[in-house]
Design a protein around this nucleic acid. Structure first.
Lengths: 209, 209
DNA sequence: AATGCTGTGTGACAATTGTTACATCACTGA
DNA sequence: TCAGTGATGTAACAATTGTCACACAGCATT
């Protein structure tokens, strides 16, 4: 898997000159699976672009309760970081590496100039916003309009999609935390999904059929 | 209440020259209380800035179930419209006038040029994104982490805040719809809030104490 | 094999929310 | 004044989700 910025960004719609600039200005950051990349109240002045790997974005409240929002994949950027940086606000969400990932960190001082100078960068940024809003709304749909069994199935399918594998290596406890419910509830519903022939369960592993 | 664009925008942080341009280029749109301003699947090429009044933004799914997200007040803009316009996407949300309102509609063809030419406009747009993300996350908190009684109370307090009055003229049915639950549940919880001395109820009217 | 740890299965019950049904109340217009 | 309509109150029950308790399974270490 190539981890060269230019190579990866070449697949985006960014202008070559901009890619050149991004490559010279940013810095590489590696995140091990499970590592917290952004946690609530962090204040940073760098905006991350995901080069390789998979990250997940969660909302966390004061009590430590958390809920899964969406996955961030290669080539994508964290729209919320952009606004936070620009406004100098603290993060109100949490980003965790779901797999070993590499990020390209851009000092936010360059953002404004790039937005002014490169149409493709404007499109990139606004596209990021569009995507994140959309995913946020889908997350809201899930939480507001669907019962736990449907939310669980959607979560499994989304995870399968993002990871590109039929096997999900998570414990019931971990899943319960991301859906903000209890382990017992997840065990119960997974057992039902198993009976319905939608999944197969093994220790620390769920196979989607 | 002044409904002159320049006057109202003068209170914002936009540059005078830009305000001048906005005033000559946009058009006024009035929305009566209850009027649907944007509905799902709409595709527009105008971005609204709220001049006066109050609008509410809702998420609506395929089944027609809906849930309240946040209020849009004077001087604010609809961040989701911006991305939708730029990306040429259809709306996936609904905006309704909560009170008689006036909007200033800007053809989105000017957006790009203004973003390039006016730093204050860039700040305006990114600030809008920041605010909306934040409110969306707060909405998620509410739905995901709180029980219906807390959600209801928060809804009442938010509404009081947005309308700037202690009296809320809504029926239980209307409130139930915005919180995606049933009328009976709302009646039950409002009665409890009344017993607790938090509100007083009259026909079509709730008074916050 | 014995021990310990983590993960999963399950029963029993509580709390919350959703649903149905019906009574009553407040206002409107004939 | 009275019928009609929409709004609210409430009981009874169902469905869903949350909580507690405990059994047991799989794996690693000793």
């Amino acid at each position: 898997m190539p981890e060269n910025v230019s190579t990866i960004l070449a697949q985006s719609e960014l202008e070559p000159k901009l890619i050149e600039e991004i490559s010279t200005i940013g810095r590489m950051k590696k995140a091990k699976e499970g590592q917290v990349v952004i946690s609530p109240d962090d204040q940073t002045d760098e905006i991350p672009i995901v080069l390789t790997g998979l990250l997940k974005v969660l909302r966390q409240d004061e009590n430590g309760d958390e809920i899964f929002l969406y996955y961030l994949e290669g080539g994508e950027t964290c729209a919320m970081s952009i606004t936070c940086c620009i406004e100098g606000r603290r993060a109100t969400y949490k980003v965790i590496a779901e797999e070993d990932s590499t990020l390209w960190m851009i000092p936010m001082t360059y953002m404004d100039s790039w937005i002014v100078r490169y149409p493709s960068f404007r499109r990139f940024v606004f596209n990021a916003y569009q995507l994140r809003f959309e995913e946020m709304l889908v997350a809201i749909d899930s939480i507001a309009f669907h019962k736990m069994d449907e939310r669980l199935l959607k979560y499994l399918l989304d995870t399968k999609q993002a990871k590109g594998t039929f096997e999900i290596n998570k414990t019931h406890e971990q899943i319960a935390k991301e859906l903000n419910t209890s382990r017992v509830v997840i065990s119960r519903l997974l057992k039902q999904l198993e009976k319905d022939g939608r999944i197969e369960q093994h220790r620390n592993k769920i196979e989607i059929l």
